[in-house]
């Protein structure tokens, strides 16, 4: 390798310079082609699938085991646990569990406001709140159940969760104060912005 002239330092005859430049250009083009061919992602799994010889190292799971998983909660109420709660009980829970971040009356603080919100959403400074923006009440239950309060998430009972949701919905004029909220009731709440979303189904590509 030491015999190779270092381009640009060693004097190279004009003809050789031309040839070297041609080879250099060819090399660069090849590098470019390689780069282009790499644009299409390799389909590594295809061969394994065609051969029918995937490793198959998963354990089967029994229905009893699956029943221990927290069910996904859908807008129609599917997955909601049994239980119920009144807004009055929710108010007390809110004060101890939520008010320090969301404000004493749900007006917001270091966490988003949960009560009220100025419409319409076409305003230059649109207010995207539970009342003005959220399309489903079940999402509120699910979010609180899985992630609130942040210091100790996932520990509120179903009755506590229904009570909290009852209070928040009552404050927003979406649930009566004297009616216990349960799975059927929660799924029946029609949020004001229910029809405000355009659901896309993107294909993988342009």
């Amino acid at each position: 390798m030491s015999a190779q002239p270092c381009l640009g330092v060693t004097r190279v005859p004009a003809r050789k310079r031309y040839v070297l430049r041609r080879w250099l250009l060819l090399g660069l083009s090849c590098a470019g082609l390689l780069a282009c061919s790499a644009v299409r992602p390799p389909v590594v799994a295809a061969g394994w699938l065609q051969a029918g010889s995937t490793p198959a190292l998963g354990w089967s799971v029994s229905s009893q085991q699956l029943a221990t998983l927290r069910p996904a909660i859908y807008p129609d109420g599917h997955g909601l646990p049994p239980g119920q709660g009144l807004a009055g009980n929710g108010a007390r829970l809110y004060a101890t569990q939520c008010a320090s971040c969301h404000g004493a009356q749900g007006e917001g603080g270091t966490a988003p406001e949960l009560v009220g919100g100025e419409g319409p959403l076409t305003r230059p400074d649109a207010d995207k709140t539970l009342l003005t923006y959220w399309p489903y009440a079940t999402t509120l239950f699910d979010t609180v159940a899985r992630s609130m309060p942040p210091a100790a998430p996932g520990h509120l009972s179903a009755d506590q969760l229904y009570a909290l949701c009852a209070w928040l919905l009552e404050r927003n004029g979406l649930w009566p104060a004297d009616t216990p909220l349960d799975a059927t009731g929660l799924a029946s709440v029609r949020m004001p912005n229910r029809a405000g979303f355009i659901a896309h189904r993107p294909t993988d590509g342009p």
């Binding site: 319409p120 959403l121 076409t122 649109a126 995207k128 539970l130 923006y133 959220w134 399309p135 489903y136 999402t139 405000g196 979303f197 355009i198 659901a199 896309h200």
Partner: peptide
């Protein structure tokens, strides 16, 4: 829904 959706000028949101 509440997050990672994009509010349009017409008040609807892309999801």
């Amino acid at each position: 829904t509440a997050q990672y959706s994009e509010l349009r000028p017409d008040g609807r949101a892309d999801q």
